[in-house]
């Protein structure tokens, strides 16, 4: 079997029923996708298979022989972040970061397929992705704002509904 991962065509030797997640992580050393539950429940392992978001833990590798797989590593590099990656930095949408690889991939697909900045639509599109840290607020803000890219990565955005009162002001 062969799959193309982030542009590199690679041979796969794992048994055909091995999950794509385990092939990526354990055979091919592509460790961006995370094993959050290995049962489809959290979304930390989501990758693009021929452009469509897939839970790699639910995908038998033999079912995608010949496919193009894009993981979070394939979306952008540290010195060349994609608009969604930039937005996640600028809006502080990642805390512990463990859900982020799947969240960024899903958000990228959502926007690339014409998704709007409507909060409800973003919630519906990404609702299968669990984040235990952020409360989702800043993830939604990041996705809503991401399309244009070109964010200032030396600072972060002020929260949408925040008031700061200093001791002096009180």
């Amino acid at each position: 079997m062969n799959i193309t991962v982030n542009g590199d065509e690679l041979e796969v030797r794992s048994p055909g029923l091995t999950s794509l997640l385990r092939v990526l992580r354990d055979e091919l050393d592509v460790v961006g996708p995370k094993a959050g539950c290995e049962a489809g429940g959290c979304g930390a392992c989501t990758v693009l298979v021929d452009g469509a978001p897939r839970r790699s833990c639910l995908t038998a590798v033999a079912a995608i022989d010949g496919a193009e797989v894009t993981t979070v590593e394939g979306l952008g590099a540290a010195d060349d972040l994609s608009p969604v990656q930039q937005a996640f930095v600028h809006y502080y949408a990642a805390q512990c970061g463990f859900c982020t690889p799947g969240m960024v991939v899903a958000a990228t697909h959502y926007l690339d397929s014409g998704g709007s900045d409507d909060r409800k639509e973003i919630q519906e599109a990404l609702r299968g992705h669990v984040c235990r840290c952020t409360g989702y607020v800043k993830i939604i803000e990041a996705v809503a704002a991401a399309r244009g890219g070109n964010f200032d990565l030396t600072t972060t955005a002020e929260g949408g509904y925040t008031t700061v009162m200093t001791g002096d002001a009180k």
Partner: peptide, 21 residues
């Protein structure tokens, strides 16, 4: 995750924050 109810994105209410120093 299907049988333990972790809050998901669609549970999110409007959250307003006041930071006092």
């Amino acid at each position: 995750f299907g049988s333990y109810f972790v809050p998901g994105m669609e549970d999110l209410p409007q959250i307003e924050t006041i930071i006092i120093e």
